[in-house]
Write a protein that binds this DNA or RNA. Structure first.
Lengths: 341, 341
DNA sequence: GTGAAAGCGCTAACAA
DNA sequence: TTGTTAGCGCTTTCAC
């Protein structure tokens, strides 16, 4: 690499016959600097191609103005949307962003968090991996008072903030809807119960059954990784038993879609024989035939709020002292669950 | 934030009665340091909770060991896969990664590149936004000899490297396949022709028509943003004309899937009335009914190669001096284009 | 309103 | 094999 030496504050100072400190102050619009001086500084900086050196600044200020994000996977519409919400806020507030993926693995999550910690991010935004067991890897952050905000897949921990939806209620509504459509033997395709999102949806499912006088049957519950492949395999297995389900409540759209495909291949009709409800309102829910009934929730807003709250915390600006923010969700009813009669 | 002062190299040195430089060298396994000394240093660093300060190091070394990635959007399976390929390599080689999205906007791309530049990344990986017109925003990088590697959506520029597939050939194969299935009036849903990927696919389409004695008809070509919405709107429009197409070659799966849905809603059959081929092999291609014929290409490998090549260039290790690397693709034939007779 | 000077933590040339 | 020393570029306290 060429070492075209960078223009520094000193170069600008020399060119203007000022001191470096004045230039530094002028550059960031410090009130004590004369207006004319500032103008001169800005002009010179621009014409000389001055670019501030963030390391020097971070080294000195002991903060990076960068926040780290750890998500399970990037390849869902939901996550991409959350992240654009985060970006909107961080851009506006002048923060940088480092995104990393745990690939749904608790082990990788540990390494992501550690890498971000080593990069000295000022704060972190996290949605937990599928199989993260404990929060020990966050202790280094807690010890240094680096703020952490969890979103979607959250965890209970003293002093942490969370941005979520009411997964219990959402699960309850989805299941109730199926029951109202006449379903009595509803399969639940659920995710790892370590994660709030899945345990709550499951709890909602059980409660809805209970409240409608339907006995809970553990045999109808399948906890899996919620991939398309798992969805298909489970339904295949189901059709080899005498379970004869008439409904499916899946904890994400991917597995719901897979279930529909498998149901149809087995010669049953959706929704007449088996009604299906998914979760997330991914675009694929409008590609599958019949279109998938699913739970929509405000991904972009989750991102925006999580980022805002985190930055407030970084700057100790938190006016209100909340620990959990719950956003609204809504059941989008489409053909996959709607029986005509 | 608590200011629990960090443990520095000096603290470790003092504790061990060594000099800071020895500790610095020991920490990075410098060959001139005695084995025993290194062991002591590592032990002490660990027990004292030493964490290296990257700014100080970057400031001094004038490099960040971080690379920047600018992609149009994160929410496709393709991009997420490319990025996991990139991550694999950067992790292995000890580089950090900053990911940012241009949201398909040339304007945003400029700001992403500028932000990454200001963060002093050692190199950049770029896939261009839909409507990027020129490469002026890369000039600052070129001037400072910061290496740039383009992938997928690439651009011609002296000294830049690219990782791509042969989009011309892929477009040619897709179109030829449709012709072999008996299609004579093939619609092309294409993207912005500023982008190599779309102009090349289009060129392949035209050449395939030509080579099979079918006259090219500009009326069958629709250049759009390739979203589901556009795909649907265009097909709607088509059905209001007397074009009567019997095939569709779409430059991505999203628009191909939208086209299928619209075709079916208009009362035509896929593939018998209209055969459809997409591009990218996104998971949705196996959800749509009939399953979508599409072009598969090695996303993960693209990411791995692009990252490897970039880091080689950063370190001036380039053994071979290539400017473009072309990877293999393959046409995945499924039901959406396969006519029985 | 402006300047002088110290130091953030690390690395590397040079010395021993 | 280890130590000394001089910055990397910036911010900020204190002085004027």
């Amino acid at each position: 690499m060429k070492n075209a030496k960078d223009v520094t504050i000193y170069d600008v100072a020399k060119a203007l016959n000022l001191s470096p400190s004045t230039v530094s102050r002028g550059l960031k619009d410090h009130p004590h600097i004369h207006k004319e001086t500032k103008k001169k500084i800005w002009a010179a900086a621009k014409s000389m191609g001055y670019q501030q050196n963030k390391f020097a600044s971070s080294l000195r200020k002991r903060r990076t103005e960068t926040i780290g994000v750890v998500v399970p996977k990037l390849n869902s519409y939901f996550m991409a949307t959350v992240i654009s919400g985060v970006e909107k806020i961080t851009n506006k507030l002048g923060y940088g962003l480092i995104i990393s993926q745990s690939q749904e693995s608790g082990k990788q999550e540990i390494s992501c968090v550690s890498t971000l910690f080593d990069s000295r991010v000022d704060g972190m935004l996290i949605s937990l991996a599928f199989d993260t067991k404990n929060l020990d890897h966050f202790n280094r952050l807690f010890n240094k008072d680096i703020p952490v905000v969890f979103f979607d897949r959250v965890a209970d921990c003293k002093g942490c903030m969370s941005v979520v939806i009411d997964n219990y209620k959402a699960g309850y509504e989805a299941t109730t809807h199926l029951i109202q459509q006449g379903c009595k033997k509803i399969i639940h395709l659920g995710g790892n119960l370590l994660r709030n999102v899945y345990s709550e949806r499951f709890r909602g499912y059980k409660q809805a059954l209970h409240d409608n006088g339907i006995e809970f049957n553990q045999k109808l519950v399948f906890i899996c990784d919620l991939t398309g492949q798992s969805g298909r395999e489970i339904m295949k297995k189901v059709f080899k038993t005498d379970l004869q389900p008439d409904g499916v409540f899946a904890a994400n759209d991917t597995s719901a879609v897979a279930a529909i495909l498998e149901i149809q291949e087995a010669g049953f009709r959706v929704p007449d024989d088996i009604a299906v409800v998914g979760f997330n309102n991914e675009p694929v829910s409008q590609v599958i035939h019949p279109n998938l009934t699913t739970l929509d929730y405000p991904a972009r807003e989750i991102g925006e709020i999580a980022a805002t709250v985190l930055i407030e915390k970084i700057n100790n600006l938190q006016s209100i002292s909340y620990s959990t923010i719950v956003l609204k969700h809504s059941l989008i009813i489409r053909q996959s669950s709607l029986r005509k009669n």
